[in-house]
Nucleic acid binder design. Structure first.
Length: 905
RNA sequence: GGGCGGUUAGCUCAGUUGGUUAGAGCACAUGCUUGACAUGCAUGAGGCCACUGGUUCGAGUCCAGUACCGCCCACCA
């Protein structure tokens, strides 16, 4: 493939579109694609991505997830591992219905007016439109996912997996149908899992009301004698079937066993003694409403009290409520309080802090209600999930989430998986007219009732659907063909890394773990990488209602996907939220621009002795000078740094290391130093060639290392560099850099030169010298430093604006040569003098600068000596540390000496 | 009511197992149209590492406690 020309200016839009098409055409995303260079004998790397909800568009948080996932998959791909990134979409049952219901409402339609069938048709149309947008967004971000394996949680494969999974759980006694107190959202008209109920601290009221005793003889309520109970939910009075007091409460001991009359419904109920009652709360007597409160249900069971549901599905009072029937629960509450007051039975009202459960989706106050639903028995499942993390079979990053994981899985209650919604997988349970249950994985249903043998036509399928997370929980294997024993499943299960936000650790991660272990007898993934949340620049959570949501497409239109990715990954510490704003994007864009221009420079600096289009050569090791060895040692060190960071999932460290290496080391120093070689007409052309090949070598390494972070830019730039015969056409499948065992060693000469140049520039700037002017420079220092500097003479001259440059044999000669006004620079073991005003005495500014440096050095010297004079330090600190301290002390002593000498003039 | 996290430069954040002088980006100040790049270059200023105590030869780093901010979990009316 011909080397591409680079445009003068970096324009992301021009770069990115074409490149994604190239990748697609080359078929490199699939681990077994035509363009894949993966070694099939190596262990595959599989990343598991949370399939985004099909209803929404992606926000910048999604972009970060995708960027991090893609970073990992590209890294693995370049390492030659078969790398699978399987993309997908989630049907998001309740979330989708909330969105569609909103749209329908504007059209004057609703679930009720459409009916199940037409409603689902509408949903399919809606989903068909939105799914395209999400996929486009993912591609824009650069997701190198295997689109040939795209899956959807409502597709045939998922449906089959759901049925099979449920049947397995049912047969193993891990799924059951039972009447239990569930969370009911009157707004969504469905039950919810415990996780979907948001505990919301609220200031409510605690009302104390009177229940009159029933006279045993007459059967009448005694107007003068009562027991007072306290409640926060007076409307549930209608369902009261008892009053409970603590068995040891002497105030009420005599009343236990007597009956009281429930107002309005005129039901006579017993007073029971129960340990669960807190004597100190309220009056110490509590009304018992088993159908609407978990504690009361338990109390009721213990004492044989009836459970009476007083509510309808939409949150109104039902027929049990007599004159209150049909009233909304809150309207009923007000009316009941009025009526109690009117009867003189409302004793008191006071403000009370309580925690209300609200629906995660609709914010409605959730009602505990007694319903018959399907549950998954979680205790045995959770036990296996805990075992997997405790044994280290699966590890969670950052590790602190393992504690949270432990805590949640330890106290977990059974999972209600029934939803009274339409958009989702129907529960594969059928009922015969006698109510016998038959669970079947046949799509068309069982042929007959398992219990009584009645034929299929008489059977009715359960109207409910599954909690959306039930199908999501099967994702890591349902997408690989499970329940069939496919090659994919064999090869790619369990996955390597599951990446997601910590906010769905219980909703999703825990469910995948539990179901994977139970159904496949192995963990679904080896590492859980939890990302933090993206916040706005003020630390606020991004949300549509706040209006602080950042659209990744807008950013990418403006500054490109690469800059967005770099910015997001730069702030990605595991489990740590990050504030995200324009400044970070600008910074990333500037970095991209820098790299673009550096590459342009390298291409343009090709010596004429190397023909255009020459195949890639390694720099000739016999022709390398200090500068070349230094440049190569820097990129080698960067490979090590990036490898270490990748191994520890420290992705922010990857970008930090590359930013520093490419900008500060390669551009600011490497290229500037190389210019002094490439522009040196006295050099042997073969040496100049080696310098250029060194730049190419190093740049090539950086582009490879940066590719997982900024894939488009690096692909474009790499395409313009000379390539070796064994390189592929595209960087995406090029080899990840490996540090050669014979990597060129660096002797520190260039670092010393850099330190000296820093000192020179600082001294000149402080002295108010024109930075561009050429000034005479003298230096002195030990060997072999000075011999190296002799070889580096052109570099020191150019970067230090030094002319003429005299390298003195010793410090005395240096001192004698410079005028009294010369600037002095002490850089490590090198001393330098810049002649600026040979006839003036040491000027004030120069003196001030040296005095400041002296004070600083003296401070450090005192500290160093103090440490060394401490006998226990010498005795107990490791030898290497003591030796380091000694060297440091000697260095400082010399610097202090020289500065003092200079100032004494 | 339990549990977790954060507190380092004006702002946003790094700081690996305790070890020379605590770093970066942005912002700030000063000076530069240097033949890759003004989306840039050079130089600089700016930190009792929240507080108190402890362990240690040595603490931003380990331990205990305090304060403030944030998050998660939780069926007591």
């Amino acid at each position: 493939m011909a080397q591409a020309e680079l445009a003068k200016a970096y324009r992301p839009a021009d770069v990115e579109g074409a490149i994604y098409e190239k990748w697609l055409a080359a078929d490199v995303f699939a681990p077994d694609g035509a363009g894949s260079r993966a070694d099939p004998s190596r262990a595959p790397f599989v990343i598991i991505q949370p399939p985004p909800n099909v209803t929404g568009s992606l926000h910048v948080g999604h972009a970060q997830r995708t960027a991090v996932e893609d970073l990992m998959i590209r890294h693995a791909r370049m390492q030659g591992r078969p790398a699978l990134f399987l993309p997908g979409l989630d049907h998001a049952s309740i979330a989708a219905q909330v969105v569609l219901d909103g749209i329908l409402a504007k059209e004057g339609e609703s679930r009720a007016t459409l009916g199940r069938e037409r409603y689902l048709e509408r949903m399919n149309e809606f989903v068909e439109r939105t799914r395209g947008l999400i996929l486009v967004q993912q591609r824009r971000v650069g997701a190198s996912a295997d689109w040939s394996r795209l899956r959807f949680t409502m597709d045939e494969g998922s449906a089959k997996a759901v049925r099979h999974a449920f049947v397995r759980l049912y047969r193993d006694g891990l799924a059951y149908r039972s009447e239990a107190l569930i969370n009911w959202c009157p707004g969504c008209q469905t039950s919810l899992s415990d996780l979907e109920v948001v505990a919301t601290p609220t200031t409510g009221s605690l009302w104390t009301i009177r229940y009159h005793f029933v006279d045993e003889g007459s059967g009448r309520a005694d107007p003068d004698h009562w027991i007072a109970v306290s409640t926060t939910r007076p409307e549930t009075i209608l369902g009261d079937t008892g009053v409970a007091v603590h068995p040891a409460d002497e105030r009420y001991a005599a009343f236990v066993g007597r009956r009281v009359r429930i107002p309005f419904v005129d039901r006579d109920v017993p007073i029971v003694a129960d340990e669960s009652v807190d004597r100190a709360f309220g009056t110490g007597a509590v009304k018992v409403t088993p159908a609407h409160d978990a504690t009361d249900l338990e109390t009721g069971k213990r004492h044989g009290l009836a459970s009476i549901d007083v509510m309808t599905d939409d949150g109104a009072i039902n027929d049990v409520g007599g004159s209150y029937a049909g009233l909304d629960r809150f309207a009923a509450r007000s009316r009941i309080l009025q009526d109690l007051a009117a009867r003189g039975d409302l004793e008191s009202e006071r403000a009370h802090e309580l925690v209300l459960g609200r629906c995660q989706r609709s914010d409605d106050v959730v009602e505990p209600r007694l319903k018959t639903q399907w549950f998954v028995r979680t205790a045995p499942l959770a036990e296996r999930a805990l075992e997997a993390t405790r044994s280290g079979r699966t590890r969670i990053l950052p590790a602190r989430f393992e504690k949270i994981w432990e805590h949640w899985l330890t106290g977990i209650r059974d999972w209600n998986v029934s939803r009274q919604l339409w958009w989702g997988h129907r529960i594969p349970a059928w009922y015969c007219p006698d109510g016998h249950v038959t669970v079947s994985e046949l799509e068309a249903g069982p042929e007959a009732c398992e219990t009584c043998g009645r034929g299929a036509p008489t059977l009715r399928q359960d109207a409910d659907i599954f909690d959306t997370w039930f199908s999501s929980g099967l994702w890591p294997f349902s997408t690989l063909g499970w329940p069939d024993q496919t090659d994919d499943l064999e090869r790619y299960y369990p996955g390597s890394v599951m990446e997601t936000g910590y906010d769905i650790i219980f909703f999703w991660v825990a469910r995948m773990m539990m179901l994977g272990l139970t159904l496949l007898d192995d963990v679904p993934f080896e590492t859980v990488y939890l990302s933090g949340l993206i916040r706005d620049p003020y630390g606020k959570k991004m949300s549509k209602t706040t209006g602080n949501v950042v659209d990744p497409l807008e950013i990418m239109d403006l500054t490109g996907a690469d800059s967005l990715r770099f910015a997001l990954i730069h702030g990605a510490a595991p489990g740590q939220d990050q504030r995200f704003g324009q400044a970070k994007i600008d910074n990333a864009r500037n970095f991209a621009n820098k790299l673009w221009n550096a590459t342009r420079y390298v291409l343009g600096a090709r010596p004429e002795s190397i023909p255009a289009g020459s195949p890639r050569q390694r720099p000739d090791p016999t022709r390398l000078g200090h500068i070349e060895r230094w440049i190569l040692s820097r990129s080698t060190a960067t490979v090590r740094a990036v490898d270490a960071a990748m191994a520890e999932f420290q992705f922010a460290e990857v970008t930090r290391a590359l930013n520093d290496a490419i900008w500060t080391q390669f551009c600011d120093w490497g290229i500037e130093l190389a210019k002094t070689r490439l522009g040196d007409q006295t050099l042997d052309p073969a040496v100049r060639d080696a310098t250029w090949w060194t730049l190419v070598e190093s740049l090539d390494t950086y582009l490879r290392l940066l590719h997982p972070v900024m894939p488009f830019l690096t692909e474009a730039l790499w395409g313009s560099l000379p390539r070796a015969a064994d390189d592929p056409d595209l960087l995406i499948v090029a080899n990840w850099p490996v540090v050669a065992p014979d990597a060129e060693a660096d002797d520190g000469a260039v670092d010393a030169l850099i330190e000296l140049v820093h000192g020179l520039r600082n001294a000149r700037a402080e002295a108010g010298m024109d930075p561009a002017s050429w000034l005479p420079l003298g230096i002195a220092g030990p060997e072999p430093r000075m011999s190296a500097f002799e070889q580096l003479r052109p570099a020191l001259e150019r970067l230090g604006r030094a002319r003429p440059l005299v390298i003195h044999a010793d410090h005395a000669s240096l001192g004698a040569s410079a005028g009294p006004g010369a600037l002095t620079i002490i850089a490590g073991d090198v001393e330098a003098r810049v002649s600026v005003a040979p006839d003036a005495s040491l000027p004030g500014r120069e003196r001030a600068r040296l005095e400041k440096e002296l004070a600083e050095a003296e401070g450090f010297l005192i500290a160093a000596r103090a440490r060394l004079s401490n006998a226990t330090f010498i005795e107990r600190a490791p030898a290497a540390v003591v030796e380091g301290a000694r060297q440091r002390e000697a260095e400082l002593a010399e610097i202090v000496d020289r500065l003092r000498g200079r100032l004494a003039l």
